Simulated assay, not measured.
Amino acid sequence: MKITKVAKAGTLESNDILIMVKPNEFGKTELELESIVMQQFGEVIEQVILHKVQEMGIEGISIKAQDKGALDYTIAARVETAISRAI
């Protein structure tokens, strides 16, 4: 499945994450992550985001994530919402 427009979900408040998605014309998945806990949890955050994208069967997506200490279930929910809005 491919997304057709730009969409976002979440906020920049503490303990939340802002996810912005847009179509990637090269047909691959790209992720740009900024996080206040990058050194401790950066890899886990990336895995949660990419797992949700794969679970939803999405191809050709660019994701920008700005994390402010969100928990895994919040990250997954924000990714799912942003993708749903972009389809």
Rank of each mutant, 00 (worst) to 15 (best):
E25F: 05
G69A: 07
S84K: 15
S84P: 00
V79K: 04
G57F: 04
I75H: 11
A65S: 10
V37G: 04
E80Y: 01
I61A: 05
T81Y: 03
E30T: 07
G10Q: 05
I58P: 03
I63T: 10
L31R: 00
E34S: 14
K68Q: 15
N15K: 13
T29N: 05
D67W: 02
V6C: 09
G60Q: 07
K64I: 09
M56N: 10
T11Q: 10
E80N: 05
R78Q: 14
K68T: 05
L12P: 01
A86G: 08
G69R: 04
E13T: 08
L71F: 10
T4D: 06
Y73D: 15
I3V: 13
K28T: 01
I49L: 06
E55C: 03
E46D: 12
T29D: 00
L12Q: 13
E80P: 00
K68D: 05
G10F: 13
K22W: 00
V79L: 09
I19S: 06
G69C: 07
I49D: 03
K68E: 08
H51E: 11
T11L: 08
A7V: 14
S84F: 11
V37Y: 14
Q39R: 03
G42Q: 11
L33D: 08
L71Y: 09
Q66W: 08
E32R: 04
K2A: 11
Y73W: 14
M1C: 04
F26Y: 00
K28N: 00
K5P: 06
A7K: 14
T11V: 14
L12E: 11
V6W: 12
A82D: 05
I58D: 02
N24R: 02
G57V: 13
S14T: 12
E25A: 06
K2W: 00
I63E: 07
V44Y: 06
I75P: 10
L71D: 09
Q40P: 00
R85K: 15
I45E: 05
I17T: 13
A76H: 09
Q54A: 15
V37W: 09
E34A: 01
K2C: 02
E32H: 05
D16P: 10
L50M: 04
S35E: 02
V79P: 05
K64S: 15
I49N: 00
M38L: 15
L31N: 02
A76W: 12
G69W: 05
L31S: 01
T29R: 01
V53C: 03
I58C: 01
H51G: 08
A77S: 15
E59Y: 03
I61H: 07
Y73Q: 15
K64P: 01
F26Q: 04
E46V: 02
T81G: 10
V37L: 10
N24A: 01
I61P: 12
E34Y: 03
E30Q: 03
M38I: 01
V44C: 10
I3F: 12
Y73K: 11
S14F: 08
A9E: 10
A82K: 07
N15L: 09
H51R: 09
A77M: 14
G27V: 01
H51K: 10
A86I: 12
H51I: 01
G10N: 07
I63H: 07
T81F: 01
R85W: 04
N24K: 00
I87G: 06
L33R: 04
D67F: 06
D67E: 08
G10P: 12
D72Y: 06
I83R: 05
